[in-house]
Design a protein around this nucleic acid. Structure first.
Lengths: 223, 223
DNA sequence: AGGCCGCTGTCATGTTCCTGTCATGTTGGC
DNA sequence: GCCAACATGACAGGAACATGACAGCGGCCT
């Protein structure tokens, strides 16, 4: 059916997955480290990757990046022991088609492999960010919320994208200053508030951006 | 959660990282030079190190070596302004578990810290506090009880969290004044009662917070 | 060059929200 | 019933945030 690469540092997990996938009719390639995986990517034609994020040495994200760097990007299903939303979102943002939490159900994983193999996946993954009813067109820097659609400036875009990626979590003001403004100190002004204000006025007051007095801002799926 | 040591010669970066890590629940130790770091390594029990490679005087690699020389080696995440592959590989060779390029995303760094520290602890426990039918979203300062959901102010949150953590026990008024208000004396007013009142009115009169006349308040599982 | 325009940080001002205090009402124990 | 302890509603000072205006800057066109 297809060639699947399994990347995991644990020998047991590797063989378990290899056998299961083989019994489903897939050819299987395995790698125990991120660098081995990246290397093997060059030589073999792989249709799908099952990737453990947490590995000693170079992490799984490096593999994700390597995959993205290639022209014909291969779908990646990420296995993650880390459950927090941030990591999941980050993995998805970096091009993973799916994130499965460890411990995982084998049948479920196989189903996900089946779904993503062959089916030419929608390229929507890296073009759009969909969170909390907001759709952000990454290439065009354009956001749509309900009936409102607006084009964002670089700063606004960067801020909104950050909040969306960290959906469900609170972003402290210093965090935003560091990641969006690339400042390691508080400029003593209210840039963040102003930029949030600009977002709210462009997309409507009812976008799910919550203010947490004394802490920062957060974007939430539920109202 | 864990003790993290931050080693960087730039004051600003140090404090930024210290605050961010602290807000994630870690204890933080900082060092401005490699030698200070190595020294502090002897006296403190550190679970993870965030290390800047480029520092005046003894470089970061010296710290890496010192860590490796110890029996129980501590995971090290290297911050590097140098982008070339050689340095990255050398750092990894010398035992770093991860290398992050400067300028770095705070979010990403925090995720990596979590990942490398997380192995020891059960995850997701710190996101919610579930006691007596009340669910408290710690990051968001939002409480849900039955069908009622309300966002809490800093004081209310702090008070409720304290009661929930000490569930089943009576919290004397002075204890609350000390731990929630950080007062070592009785202000002679009824702050506590007022704040309890605000909690009750936000979450409904039937939340399991009991008044113990002459003593204080307690939160109980059974109604 | 000169002028226009959009982006962005800053500031002054308005607004909201938090929080301790007090006055008053209510409750519970004796 | 009395008193102490607690509950409740209102209020004011202040902090944190929201908002509108403005100016510097750089790109772009003429």
């Amino acid at each position: 059916m297809a060639t699947v690469m399994v990347v995991d540092d644990e020998e047991r997990v590797r063989t378990l997955l290899a056998k299961s996938l083989a019994s489903q009719g897939h050819s299987v390639v395995t790698a125990g480290t991120a660098s081995a995986a990246i290397e093997r990517l060059e030589s073999r034609d792989v249709d799908l990757i099952v990737l453990d994020l947490v590995m000693p040495g170079l992490g799984g994200l490096a593999v994700l990046d390597a995959v993205n760097a290639r022209k014909r990007s291969t779908p990646v299903i990420v296995l993650s022991g880390v459950t927090d939303v941030g990591t999941r979102v980050e993995a998805l943002d970096r091009g993973a088609v799916d994130v499965v939490a460890k411990p995982f159900s084998l049948t479920e994983l196989l189903a996900r492999v089946r779904r993503n193999v062959g089916a030419a996946r929608a390229p929507a993954d890296d073009r759009f960010l969909d969170v909390g009813g907001i759709r952000l067109d990454v290439g065009r820097r354009r956001a749509t919320f309900g009936s409102v659609s607006a084009s964002l400036t670089e700063r606004e875009f960067s801020l909104l994208a950050h909040l969306m990626r960290r959906c469900g979590e609170v972003c402290r003001k210093e965090e935003l200053l560091h990641d969006v403004w690339h400042l390691d100190f508080d400029p003593g002004s209210n840039v963040v508030e102003v930029c949030i204000g600009r977002l709210r006025s462009k997309l409507g007051q009812d976008i799910p951006i919550e203010t947490l007095r004394g802490v920062g801002y957060g974007l939430y799926e539920d109202a």
